[in-house]
Design a protein around this nucleic acid. Structure first.
Lengths: 343, 343
DNA sequence: TTATAAAAGTTACGCGCGTAAAGTTTTTAT
DNA sequence: ATAAAAACTTTACGCGCGTAACTTTTATAA
């Protein structure tokens, strides 16, 4: 750690006594150079603390080490948690993750994809906005860059899809709720920005019908990603107007459920399974905060780590071998019922 | 929107009938070229949809348009929300934000700073890990890159600091709690990773003493950033062992309070100000979910938007004029008491 | 119309690195 | 020891763009 400052690979090659192309090779793959050469480079590396400029590297490389990660809304803890898992796995695999949030806006999503293209990423992990997305734009992007879609389903786009099996998830939850009490009413936003809303609703309807129950859907107004607030406001109004068709509510996602549970508390409605309770509320996602609602929320856990693992793994596969299967590979993870006290 | 694909500025210059250097000038500042030239370029721009490669631009530019944003832990909604605000403001100002999370690890923070240096960012907005940070590493970085620190205070590092006035915040909260009931016990983690823990504790002690009260601090064990869990576990154990010295608890931050409120609920302890309540719990930060706890949390709001605004504004100032003031500028925002029902 | 300034074009080099080709040295195998 | 293979060095060019120096064209003024 000393001496002159190293400004580029040329200078570093000089002080290490190795030619620049060989040094370049070393950084591309340390195992590709002779042991004695590696030793000399690594010794110099300790003395001079040089690191190649990753953005200059990417200029000529066919395969860069950049991985783009795009989520629709990063302030949503679900995506924050997924992103955290994805980043870690990319780093562990020697890649350089770059994280972007579309902030719920199509223009932003498109802009991110455009910028990402310039970064020449080895691959991209994309959770699209869903309905608000510019599908053509995304498709064009996927044609140029190896892309694995996750969480948010877009038809026939990208090299692979990793998400959750909403049909199974809803069946699981609806089964449980019907078995343990009154059939659930489904609670969602009227204009859902959440990318999976439609599939979940369909899953609910199918599950109810297969049990011989009539589906009952309640929709509340609200714009944007402030789900808790929307659940709180809409739920509160509904409770005041006499409550739901049954004593059981299944929310489209945990954040909506968090709002609804808070609304019930505010209105003095006891939530839970106990004898003195008059409302059961269930969510979906096993949001990081759902275990801290009062009462703790019964929900369906998505295996964040597994989704992240499989997404990254699939992407690396696509990067190395190209999109193998003609109809793109789709991995759907099953959910796990997390029994807590709210339903 | 048609014709051949434009691969670089050279090709675009060709189809627009303008020389490449002039085109380059146009992209640097559209107003710097003749009106007729600008018209021709913009016309070609519509026909061919070309955008310069931002990462190649940055290679030679003195001042790039990249802004690095670094937060200690992005899965924490507080930082997610701040990051969202910062990103938006950078985009609006024509910059290109790049977001990184240190994931609570020093090695990660250092690696991010190293990579960021290569991006030749115009400036960096850094919320450091705090205690776990490699202060020397950060200082060296700040010497090379215009950096505004925010939220997490590091002594004499960076060109400016924007954060909150913990002394004022604690005074406000302690005053309120003492005035409205028993004096608060302070609840925190034994080994806080949260960067502001020390200043907050000091603020608590000072505020209590100025009111003639004896500070009482309770510390719970726990590692990492899973604050709710730590608050839940530690708080639950404390409640079982007989509770706190007074009936009022002030938590180091909202997330800890969320856990503690959940623990109280689980143990059947009524939280709030009402006559039947036996525990008051207050937090700090006005975390996005704090209004949905049961009961809704009384806390101190930090003005996310103002902090983000000022941070970005300060950074732009530093970028344009260099670090003006010798002792770096420090902006401390006051908090606002958010009276809800938990205390 | 002519002088003059401003803008645009031309040419050339540089950023930090990838990478291919050709020649040289070292290692491994025979 | 000798041949073959492997690893290295040298040389040179390219990525997409910034930018400086110089020449030519265009706009403005007198």
């Amino acid at each position: 750690m000393a001496g002159r400052k190293i400004r580029n690979m040329e200078e570093f090659a000089e002080v290490s006594g190795i030619s620049r192309p060989t040094v370049s090779k070393y950084f591309h793959d340390p195992g590709s150079v002779r042991k004695s050469t590696r030793a000399r480079i690594e010794e110099a590396l300790e003395r001079y603390e040089y690191r190649p400029n990753i953005f200059a590297m990417n200029q000529n490389r066919r395969l860069t080490k950049n991985i783009g990660i795009v989520v629709p809304y990063l302030a949503d803890p679900f995506f924050a948690e997924i992103a955290r898992n994805l980043e870690r796995r990319c780093i562990d695999a020697g890649f350089f993750p770059l994280l972007f949030s579309s902030h719920g806006e199509q223009a932003q999503e498109n802009a991110i994809l455009d910028s990402l293209r310039l970064l020449k990423p080895a691959g991209v992990l994309l959770a699209a906005l869903g309905r608000p997305s510019d599908h053509d734009h995304i498709k064009r992007f996927c044609a140029d860059v190896p892309t694995v879609l996750f969480d948010s389903y877009l038809d026939a786009t990208g090299a692979a899809f990793v998400g959750s099996d909403h049909a199974q998830v809803l069946r699981l939850m609806v089964d449980y709720l019907c078995r343990s009490g009154q059939p659930p009413v489904y609670f969602e936003m009227r204009n859902p920005v959440n990318p999976n809303a439609n599939r979940r609703r369909a899953g609910y309807v199918a599950a109810m019908e297969s049990l011989g129950q009539t589906p009952e859907i309640v929709r509340v107004d609200g714009q944007g990603w402030n789900f808790e607030q929307i659940g709180f406001d809409g739920g509160g109004a509904l409770i005041e107007r006499g409550g739901f068709a049954t004593d059981t509510v299944l929310c489209n996602n945990d954040r909506l459920a968090i709002g609804l549970i808070a609304a019930a508390y505010a209105k003095g409605v006891k939530v839970g399974r106990g004898p003195e309770c008059t409302l059961r509320i269930a969510g979906m996602d096993d949001h990081p905060f759902s275990q801290f609602t009062c009462p703790p929320m019964t929900t369906i856990a998505q295996d964040y780590a597994a989704i992240a693992d499989r997404s990254v793994e699939t992407l690396f596969n696509v990067i190395e071998n190209g999109a193998l299967t003609e109809p793109r590979a789709e991995t759907l993870f099953e959910g796990r019922l997390v029994m807590r006290d709210s339903a």
